[in-house]
Nucleic acid binder design. Structure first.
Lengths: 211, 211
DNA sequence: GCGGAGGTAAACCGATCGGTTTACCTGACT
DNA sequence: AGTCAGGTAAACCGATCGGTTTACCTCCGC
């Protein structure tokens, strides 16, 4: 753990070309068809790799599932803040206004993200449905992801002058989850804007001037 | 469709004792472990029935999955309105107040329901995660369930003097889904009260006196 | 020039998958 | 007395599951 690249980037770069293809194929298949419905043989075939290579790199299907979820989580953690920084730069000089803009920008980001990556609903919620065992390594990643997002929302809310920002963060988390689920079931036409309007209301209720 | 019992009750009563046990066992196992993780052999064993009986009564696993979801849907459709009628009777003589009480009572009902039947999140959302094929008979039942609940919420909202009641109903649906998902992941301590508070805000925003 | 990492190809393992078949038994209704 | 629905018990089917093994090949760095 000395000098040079560390953490997520290092782990990603450390992947063998074959392993990279395996993980990509697994990600696509697990999300689109469900984890238990996809066998390792199919993954190996899609990745143009033998099963031996798959097991040499990942050890087990369980571990591959965890790797899939971990990478999905990392992508989200890298992408979301970048997106919010963009929105913040576009805002005015007023720090309070910027903080509020960042909170609401999470919904604009969600809109883009769900279109691109979540047509079948939240990958973590779907995975949790298939992994009832709480000790499964994938379940641990899911718990970490939900925890991270909650804490991130708290940060954003605390940056505003909202009363009870932690409570506000929980409300926003609920709105995000609801929008993703409804989007996956297409039970409602435009769930994200719906959630955003509810979020605006939650902000104004707390005395914030939400444009 | 002449005299005597009809519809759901008839379908339920029509079940053979063996078939009844199969459906009960399947419901428990499908919900707790996931649909694809449960084999027909295990279901038959739990129901103390041979596989032949299972296939004689249900024809296929697909059909059994659909029957499981259909019964879950029927239970919910029977239970929820009964619950709301209770809440309405407890309300005062003012019809507007009663209508509002019924809307909010959906969240009190949800609280009870999730404790009793949904510790692992919404059974329909979980099932949808495992059934990517939109033509699967189970998927059809899921679509019907979401549709029914949406329409039911619209009814409730239209009974109030809320402006744009259909839109309000969509918001409430989103809050319900969000609360169920968060409850299943226990990412938040008390998701249902959280959703209920957001619902109250949605009502007051529309000029309704939500107690 | 040699060893080890990364890989292919393919056979193999026991277990389980969804589903079928044959033979026999039981109790209720006609 | 006879029929038939609802069942048990158990063998059987081909396919697939997650996972392992053996043998061989290739390229890169020391």
């Amino acid at each position: 753990m000395g000098s040079g690249a560390t953490g997520a980037a290092a782990r990603r770069a450390a992947l063998t070309p074959g392993a990279r293809r395996v993980l990509d194929a697994a990600a696509e298949l697990f999300y689109e068809r469900g984890i238990n419905a996809v066998g390792v043989d199919l993954i190996a075939q899609r990745a143009q790799v033998t099963k031996k290579t798959l097991y040499d790199r990942f050890g087990s299907k369980e571990a591959l599932v965890a790797a899939y979820l971990r990478e999905r989580d990392e992508r989200w953690r890298r992408w979301l803040p970048a997106r919010l920084d963009e929105a913040a730069r576009a805002g005015g000089p007023d720090p309070e206004a910027v903080a509020i803009a960042r909170v609401l920008a999470t919904f604009d980001a969600l809109e883009v993200w769900t279109c691109r990556e979540n047509p079948r609903g939240c990958g973590f919620v779907n995975a949790a449905a298939e992994l009832p065992d709480l000790t499964h390594p994938g379940r641990v990643v899911i718990a970490e992801q939900k925890r991270w997002f909650r804490d991130y929302l708290r940060e954003l809310c605390r940056a505003t002058s909202a009363s009870d920002p932690d409570d506000l963060a929980d409300e926003l988390a609920l709105l995000h989850e609801g929008a993703m689920v409804l989007g996956g079931l297409d039970a409602v036409a435009e769930p994200v804007p719906l959630a955003r309007r509810l979020a605006v209301r939650a902000l104004t209720q707390r005395g914030l001037p939400a444009a």
